[in-house]
Lab assay of single mutants.
Amino acid sequence: TEYKLVVVGAGGVGKSALTIQLIQNHFVDEYDPTIEDSYRKQVVIDGETCLLDILDTAGQEEYSAMRDQYMRTGEGFLCVFAINNTKSFEDIHQYREQIKRVKDSDDVPMVLVGNKCDLAARTVESRQAQDLARSYGIPYIETSAKTRQGVEDAFYTLVREIRQH
Rank of each mutant, 00 (worst) to 15 (best):
D153I: 12
E97W: 00
F77Q: 08
N85T: 04
E142Q: 09
Q21F: 13
F27M: 13
K146F: 14
T143H: 06
N85D: 10
V80Q: 00
Y140W: 10
E75V: 06
E125P: 10
R163N: 08
E97G: 05
T57I: 13
T147F: 10
Y39D: 08
M66I: 03
V28A: 03
Y3D: 08
I141V: 06
L5W: 06
D56Q: 04
Y31H: 14
D104K: 05
V44E: 05
R72M: 00
V8H: 06
Q149P: 14
D56H: 04
Y63I: 10
T123H: 08
Y140N: 09
R134H: 11
T34N: 03
E75W: 08
D104W: 03
S135T: 11
L132A: 12
I54T: 12
V13K: 10
D153G: 10
S126M: 10
I162S: 12
V7N: 02
G76C: 12
Y156D: 13
K103N: 03
T86N: 02
Q128H: 10
K116G: 15
F27I: 04
V151W: 15
V124K: 11
T49W: 01
Q42H: 09
V111S: 08
T57N: 09
Q60I: 15
E2C: 08
G12V: 15
T86V: 02
H93F: 03
Y140A: 10
D91P: 01
E62L: 08
T123Q: 11
M71T: 08
I23T: 05
R127C: 12
K15L: 00
G137C: 00
C50I: 04
G11W: 15
F27C: 07
G74Y: 06
I35C: 08
V13I: 14
S64N: 05
Q130P: 09
I141M: 13
R148F: 13
L158Y: 04
A10V: 05
L132S: 11
I92L: 07
T19V: 03
F77R: 01
F89Q: 02
F81R: 02
D46N: 06
A154R: 04
H93D: 05
P33F: 07
S64Y: 09
V113Q: 05
K87W: 03
E30W: 03
N25D: 10
A82E: 11
Q164N: 11
D118C: 14
A10I: 06
K103F: 13
R134E: 09
V151N: 13
R127D: 09
F27P: 03
D53R: 03
L22S: 15
E142I: 09
A133N: 11
I54P: 00
E30R: 07
T34P: 04
F155D: 09
S16L: 00
D118M: 04
